[in-house]
Design a protein around this nucleic acid. Structure first.
Length: 451
RNA sequence: GUGGCUGUAGCUCAGUUGGUUAGAGUAGCGGUUUGUGGUACCGCUGGUCGUGGGUUCGAGCCCCAUCAGCCACCCCA
């Protein structure tokens, strides 16, 4: 036998293992979201973790491209470089990458959705309402609450311009967080209003830059925003116009300001429609909401946790050009995303996970000695046949280990089997929490007791 | 990509001005005890002190480099 080299067990940076109890909690979140989405007619899809690099690159900006995980080609991956008779050392990393890597791990679920919709348009019924929960990967530097592998959960409607989709998605947001027991405020704004704001300040061409600055408002404050704006070479008057508009609290105030700005009027009208059809205390208009992603074109949302500044628990918006890059006809889409990882942290912190989600089998049968294992197994099998989740304990005979097992797996009852039980066919059913026992039960007593 | 902090047993951590063979708790394994029990006690396994170099008679400890992880920024979820 060859000597085994011991490897220190450790994870790749920015990744996590999940314990059984953690998976149970995550599934609880997933299932809560799924049940609401299904009720509204959304269907679940899946796409591969691996996509062609040509699908992924160029969609997330220069920064995003750097954060793509790239997969080394199989086989002799240097053959292409060799055939060009180029010295490797003379090439930059950017030049080498496309020669040795053609695939990558998906960066989000939105770009794969765009590819999916164009590729399968003949098989899909439009408007296409789909949701997708799965891991995505980013070669980012990890920090608290940010990982290289993490889950996203997106729900989108593709191919319908109706504002009722916005209404539906708003209601879905409210319903999901309500069901999870998290108090959030749902902030809403429109990219059209931000465009109008740029037009109002006569700097339409700087829309993207201004949006990025406004998006930081929460962090850097109004003074910080003014400071950043001055860096964009805006006149004092322009800065003043923008920062005073950012103080606006209601759509009514805006109506007068945007009297002569078509796009602004449109934005206000759209938001008013959504508000009219969705009355909720925690749904608020917020002109300072910008969202960094600049592919949004209409209504945008952000879910903010009321009780702390943990950041956004979700976000989304309407976009118009999703499928264009894959040669599809221009289909409008609107979608929302749930921040699964942060939702988990919030639920954990506030201890909002329901007790019963980690429930194991109902009863554990513990054989006192090896000679009764077969008999014990037969009893367990009878319970299973009757549809009662049951287990036989085959580990360490120490009581301590047995009770650890029961506790970890949240098993409600224990039955111990020794010689007496085998002979009499009568058992003691013990509640693992209260330690109460019931004596002299036959196996069918136990079955009817636990059914 | 930039900055800060931390690396000692599977995990949480001690480790004296730099001085013999690096410790504890916990987990794991084994045992003693108790026929209705979750207690207690005993023993065992497990470490290239992240890695490489330097200073020194002597380094877990001091110096340099490097790697890794965490935290903050950029960006983002």
């Amino acid at each position: 036998m060859s000597e085994v080299r011991k490897i220190k067990p450790s994870l790749s940076k920015g990744t996590r293992d999940f314990l059984p109890s953690e998976v149970a909690k995550r599934n609880y979140i997933f299932n809560t979201i799924k049940s609401v989405l299904r009720k509204y007619g959304f269907e679940e899809i899946e796409t591969p973790a691996i996509e062609k690099l040509e699908t992924l690159t160029g969609k997330y900006g220069e920064e995003g491209d750097k954060l793509l995980f790239k997969i080394l080609n199989s086989g002799d991956y240097l053959s292409e470089i060799r055939s060009k008779k180029t010295e490797i050392a003379s090439l930059t990393s950017q030049e080498i990458t496309p020669m040795i890597s053609e695939k990558g791990l998906r960066y989000d679920l939105t770009v794969p959705l765009a590819r999916y919709v164009v590729q399968h348009q003949d098989d899909l019924a439009f408007p296409f309402k789909r949701f997708h929960i799965g891991p995505v990967w980013r070669a980012d530097r990890p920090q608290k609450g940010r990982y290289q592998e993490f889950y996203q959960c997106d729900a989108d409607v593709i191919g319908s311009n109706s504002l009722l989709n916005e209404v539906e998605l708003t209601k879905i947001y409210l319903e999901v967080y309500e069901k999870l027991g998290i108090q959030v405020s749902l902030r809403m704004n429109s990219r059209k209003i931000l465009e109008a704001l740029a037009e109002y300040a006569s700097c339409k061409e700087l829309l993207t830059e201004i949006t990025v600055v406004i998006d930081k408002l929460d962090k850097i404050g109004i003074e910080g925003v003014k400071n950043e704006l001055s860096k964009l070479n805006l006149s004092a008057e322009q800065q003043q116009k923008i920062s005073s508009l950012l103080q606006t609290k209601s759509l009514e105030e805006l109506t007068a300001v945007f009297e002569n700005i078509e796009i602004g009027k449109k934005g206000i009208e759209e938001l008013n429609f959504v508000f009219k059809n969705t009355t909720a205390q925690n749904l608020v208009f917020d002109i300072t909401l910008a969202r960094g992603l600049n592919y949004y074109t209409g209504v945008i949302w952000e879910v903010v946790f009321s009780q702390s500044t943990i950041g956004s628990l979700g976000g989304g918006g309407r976009y118009d050009n999703l499928t264009e890059m894959f040669g599809g006809q221009n289909m409008s889409g609107v979608g929302i995303s749930f921040g699964i990882e942060r939702i988990y942290d919030v639920l954990e912190e506030l201890q909002l996970f329901p007790e019963n989600i980690t429930q194991g089998v109902k009863v554990l049968f513990v054989p006192r000695e090896e000679s009764v294992e077969e008999f014990t197994f037969q009893q367990v099998q009878m319970l299973r046949d009757a549809g009662i989740p049951a287990e036989i304990f085959l580990g360490n005979v120490k009581k301590q280990k047995q009770f650890n097992y029961v506790e970890q797996k949240h098993i409600a009852y224990i039955v111990e089997i020794g010689g007496n039980e085998v002979e009499s066919g009568r058992f003691r059913l013990r509640n693992s929490q209260t330690r109460d026992t019931e004596q002299d039960l036959t196996i069918s007593d136990i079955i009817s007791r636990l059914s």
